[in-house]
Design a protein around this nucleic acid. Sequence first.
DNA 1: CACCTTGTTCGTTGTTTGGCGAACAACGAA
DNA 2: TTCGTTGTTCGCCAAACAACGAACAAGGTG
Lengths: 103, 103
Amino acid sequence: MRQPHHPALEDLTLARALKALSDPVRLRIVTTLADGSERGWGEFEVGVSKSTLSQHMKTLREAGLTKTRMEGTRCYVSLREDFDTKFPGLVPAVLALTGPGRR
Amino acid sequence: MRQPHHPALEDLTLARALKALSDPVRLRIVTTLADGSERGWGEFEVGVSKSTLSQHMKTLREAGLTKTRMEGTRCYVSLREDFDTKFPGLVPAVLALTGPGRR
DNA sequence: CACCTTGTTCGTTGTTTGGCGAACAACGAA
DNA sequence: TTCGTTGTTCGCCAAACAACGAACAAGGTG
């Protein structure tokens, strides 16, 4: 596959986003991306196999939370800013709870 | 059982709360309670059997989102205000997205 | 007491989830 | 071209989930 599929804003649902956020591994990934940075797959130390990580990344991407960019054989992920257009305040609220000092 | 069990604030987890909110039926229940009112089981028109509804109510209660009060054979539910002490802003953020005009 | 109403629990069914390793695809480098 | 690296996909499995009806418990009411 060239670049992976990203759903349109109008296809996103709140329940789907909340479900994507409701797994500890995925929550950690989103938290790591909170600073707006773009990260490679290998930078996540979440303690799961690469196939499992791949599935989590797919879940986040299809929920509209993240954007994945392929470069050669590498993948990079970052938060989708336009998610906040669809569901304003949701991600900030969650990040405020997982941010510095909290978990 | 007399009154049902409600978990202590320190036993609540963010992932658990998000998962509880990630089901359309439970999201509708929470949305209905957004005005701070207390509702009886029968007031929810969510299209599931009473046994299924009972399970959803249990899920919400154990996630710390709702408070259940028994009166005779009837049950009444409302949002737990102290949830916002543990996870400030989370429920308001979700309610803002499901409130008037949205779904 | 008998009966009705209201929820909970139990047992069942089918689906989804989260995890893994193995196999595959794609690219870059030697 | 042949490797090695990096993700994805493909079974596969156990656990969790969501749903239902039936059976049960507990209060009211007649």
